[in-house]
Simulated assay, not measured.
Amino acid sequence: MAVEIDTVLVPVDDTEEAERAVEYAVAIAQRYGASIHILHIVDDSVARAIQRDEIDADAVAEEHRAFMAAVRELTRDADGDVEATQSSAAGFSAERLSQHPVNVVLDSAEEIGADMIVVPRESTSDAPGAMLGKVAQHVLSYASQPVLSV
């Protein structure tokens, strides 16, 4: 039975592990003729700081644009272009107590029709944005799609 992968979801935070996950996702997309969707998970502390005007939302958006520029460069370097799209979501929410990075990743995978998820493993970094590696095991356990943890 042939494996069909059309869309690979890659949740990212501000870690090197997330960047490595993108590299793997691009390789998978290239192999299967698929596209990738980058899901920027915004850390709760960053989201709250934006709400309190302590961090400029435009600066966060610019970081995401810069990250995507690097992703697009990586996709162009691949043998054959890989289409890349992006979205952002808060990892946690004070208004929606059920909002957790695991749910955000799994819900996003369903919404975009992802055929595979590539998640970063736990980061050795204590950076405020380093949260995705901590949820990788839960994504592995509960996703209905195949999951690669790198």
Rank of each mutant, 00 (worst) to 15 (best):
M1V: 13
A84E: 08
V12A: 07
A109P: 04
Q51P: 00
D53P: 03
T124D: 12
A109R: 03
A94Y: 14
L106D: 06
V119D: 03
D13C: 09
S141K: 15
T75P: 00
E111K: 14
V139P: 09
V82M: 04
A27E: 15
E73Y: 06
E122K: 15
M1W: 07
Y24T: 09
P128L: 14
E4C: 10
I117E: 02
S45N: 04
I5Y: 01
S123N: 05
Q86H: 00
G33A: 11
I112H: 01
R96I: 09
S108N: 13
D126Q: 15
G91Y: 02
V82T: 08
S141H: 10
S35C: 05
A66Y: 09
V22L: 02
G113V: 10
Q30W: 06
L97K: 15
V82Q: 02
A61T: 14
S98N: 08
S144E: 12
Q145V: 02
E4Q: 15
E122H: 15
D56G: 07
V139L: 09
I112T: 01
F92K: 12
L9H: 05
V147T: 08
K134G: 12
E62G: 10
D77N: 11
R52Q: 15
A70K: 13
I50K: 08
H138N: 13
D44A: 11
Y142S: 14
V119K: 06
F92L: 11
S45E: 08
A70Y: 02
Y24L: 10
E110T: 12
E95R: 12
M68V: 07
A21P: 09
L97W: 10
I55R: 14
V118A: 06
L9G: 02
D14F: 00
A84Q: 07
A59N: 14
V104H: 01
L132T: 04
H40T: 09
I36W: 01
A18C: 09
P146D: 07
L74W: 05
D43E: 10
S149P: 06
E54M: 09
A25C: 04
A47W: 05
E19I: 14
Y142G: 13
A47M: 07
I36V: 14
A49K: 11
P146F: 01
E73T: 14
V150W: 11
A136P: 03
I28H: 00
H37D: 09
H37K: 13
R121G: 11
T15W: 03
R72S: 09
S108Q: 13
V139S: 04
A127M: 11
A69N: 13
N103Q: 12
H40L: 02
S93T: 03
D53L: 11
A47H: 06
I5W: 08
V119N: 02
Y24P: 04
E73F: 08
